[in-house]
Amino acid sequence: MDLIAFAPATDLDRAVEFYGAVLGLEHQETTPFAAVFRAGNVMLRVTKVESLQPQPFTILGWSVPDLRATVAHLATRGVAFTRYDGMSQDSVGIWTTPDGSQVAWFRDPEGNTLSLTQFA
């Protein structure tokens, strides 16, 4: 079985711009119901919803080989990385886990929390 990931959005044009042009995912199609992307072997369906209350937890995340380089690249594309009170994040918003993995969080235009992880 192949995984299909879902994320909600009220504005599919804005989702295509963000997930495609900003994050660099391959945009496959947009229908009245969803914008479809390819992230490696995973299909991401950004599904049209009438209203959205973003949740406080991560809904999508990516494993990256070089977190600092990825954070720097996305920052040049306007992505702002989230800082959390009480977490010891570095100057660019990266948190190092007890096992040495590193994580950075950011939000899509809808306010959904996304993450990048470089595993130890």
Results as ranks from 00 to 15, higher is better:
93 G>E: 03
40 G>I: 07
32 P>H: 09
65 P>E: 07
90 D>T: 08
22 V>C: 01
120 A>L: 13
56 P>Y: 07
32 P>Q: 07
53 Q>T: 13
30 T>S: 01
74 L>N: 05
32 P>W: 07
86 G>R: 10
120 A>G: 15
110 E>G: 05
61 G>H: 09
110 E>V: 08
44 L>S: 00
80 A>W: 01
90 D>G: 05
3 L>Y: 10
114 L>H: 06
64 V>I: 12
47 T>K: 12
46 V>T: 01
54 P>L: 04
71 V>G: 00
37 F>A: 02
51 S>P: 01
14 R>P: 00
32 P>L: 03
60 L>K: 02
1 M>C: 11
21 A>G: 01
60 L>H: 08
70 T>A: 12
118 Q>A: 01
120 A>N: 11
66 D>K: 09
72 A>T: 13
70 T>R: 15
110 E>M: 13
39 A>T: 03
12 L>Q: 03
107 R>I: 05
34 A>Y: 06
28 Q>M: 07
94 I>K: 01
22 V>P: 01
82 T>M: 14
83 R>G: 04
6 F>M: 06
24 G>C: 03
62 W>L: 12
114 L>V: 04
77 R>D: 03
109 P>Q: 11
47 T>V: 13
93 G>F: 05
95 W>L: 14
38 R>N: 02
74 L>K: 07
39 A>S: 12
65 P>I: 05
20 G>I: 10
7 A>Y: 02
48 K>Q: 10
90 D>L: 03
115 S>G: 14
74 L>G: 03
56 P>H: 07
67 L>E: 07
22 V>W: 06
10 T>Y: 05
60 L>Y: 07
15 A>D: 07
61 G>N: 11
83 R>N: 02
8 P>E: 01
28 Q>S: 00
41 N>K: 14
48 K>C: 02
13 D>M: 09
120 A>K: 15
44 L>A: 04
42 V>I: 15
40 G>F: 04
29 E>D: 15
83 R>W: 03
46 V>N: 06
62 W>E: 04
94 I>V: 14
10 T>E: 11
78 G>W: 13
19 Y>W: 04
57 F>T: 12
93 G>Q: 08
29 E>I: 11
63 S>T: 15
32 P>F: 04
83 R>C: 03
100 G>C: 10
22 V>A: 01
75 A>C: 05
57 F>Y: 15
49 V>T: 14
57 F>G: 09
107 R>E: 14
37 F>V: 02
55 Q>T: 11
40 G>L: 02
60 L>P: 09
77 R>G: 01
33 F>R: 14
12 L>H: 02
99 D>W: 08
68 R>V: 09
79 V>W: 04
99 D>H: 08
95 W>G: 03
50 E>T: 15
1 M>G: 14
20 G>N: 09
4 I>R: 11
77 R>F: 00
88 S>T: 10
3 L>N: 11
54 P>F: 10
15 A>M: 10
88 S>I: 02
73 H>G: 09
118 Q>M: 08
1 M>N: 11
116 L>H: 01
55 Q>W: 03
68 R>A: 10
115 S>Y: 12
41 N>H: 10
90 D>M: 03
45 R>D: 05
102 Q>V: 10
83 R>P: 05
59 I>R: 06
18 F>Y: 06
88 S>Q: 13
38 R>Y: 00
81 F>G: 03
38 R>T: 09
